[in-house]
């Protein structure tokens, strides 16, 4: 031990060379998230006449590695709303804790009035927009599904930039390319939401989860699905894709069935 406390507890220079504290830069730029690390892929949701169906698979990827295969990316709030998370999983967990504390705060002074899906979406949009304005974004795209103040189906999206939009069908990530066109075949207009049944909506979502599993390399055949109606949330977190058909794969070189 020498007279420099800064040197205590560290290997002698002779062993590893001088310690390089540049990783602890006091004067350098403060590091914020500039790219997501562990990520979740698509979230899908469709409105129907009494509510909303929302689904996301249970995979958290680390780059191309399927790292965690049992991560639940749908979160209920107030037993009336479900938030689906795409993007960075650590930021998802931060938002999860944030929503938990919001829930506790709101329910302490219980006035009988609780936050509905629209309220929650507004809150999350402000959180996301604040963070992007601080150039310290939460690297997610969220779908908020539930019922609004008039008990009408509500579905809306927020992303890491604070951009918000709402539509009868929504899909994040890869799903925006693959699933959204299929879902729009079921409901392409807000006016037609009233004629879509719960079965139609769930079937469409399940079919899309299958299509995504076929073609999205960062997806999984285990997924969560939630149906939100006036009666509450029915959340199933351990669903598996059924009736998969890989017949198409035989036609394609690179799927491994051909030898030449």
């Amino acid at each position: 031990m020498n007279h420099l406390p800064q040197a205590w507890g560290r290997p002698r220079n002779a062993i590893l060379g001088a310690y390089n504290p540049s990783i602890l830069q006091p004067s350098g730029p403060k590091a914020h998230t500039t790219s997501p690390i562990v990520t979740g892929t698509s979230v899908l949701a469709v409105k129907f006449k009494d509510g909303v169906v929302i689904a996301a698979d249970n995979l958290a990827s680390y780059g191309s590695l399927a790292r965690f295969t049992d991560v639940k990316r749908l979160r209920t709030f107030n037993r009336r709303t479900v938030v689906g998370f795409g993007g960075d999983v650590s930021d998802m967990q931060y938002l999860d804790r944030l929503l938990l504390s919001l829930d506790i705060e709101e329910n302490y002074g219980s006035s009988g009035h609780d936050l509905n899906a629209l309220n929650l979406h507004t809150y999350l949009a402000k959180v996301m927009y604040k963070r992007r304005s601080d150039i310290n974004p939460l690297w997610n795209q969220l779908l908020v599904a539930g019922l609004d103040g008039l008990d009408q189906p509500f579905l809306s999206s927020v992303d890491l930039l604070g951009t918000t939009f709402s539509s009868p069908t929504l899909a994040t990530g890869f799903g925006a390319h693959l699933a959204q066109p299929l879902l729009r075949k079921v409901v392409d207009d807000e006016a037609k939401v009233g004629s879509v049944t719960r079965e139609q909506a769930t079937n469409a979502v399940r079919e899309c989860m299958k299509v995504l599993f076929y073609r999205d390399a960062r997806s999984l055949d285990k997924y969560s699905i939630a149906v939100i109606t006036k009666d509450g949330v029915e959340l199933k977190e351990d669903e598996e894709l059924e009736n998969q058909s890989w017949a198409f794969a035989e036609m394609i070189k690179g799927y491994g069935t051909q030898t030449v």
Partner: peptide
């Protein structure tokens, strides 16, 4: 273990 004049500091 002291920092080198040219090297990094602790």
């Amino acid at each position: 273990n002291s920092p080198l004049a040219s090297g990094p500091s602790y």
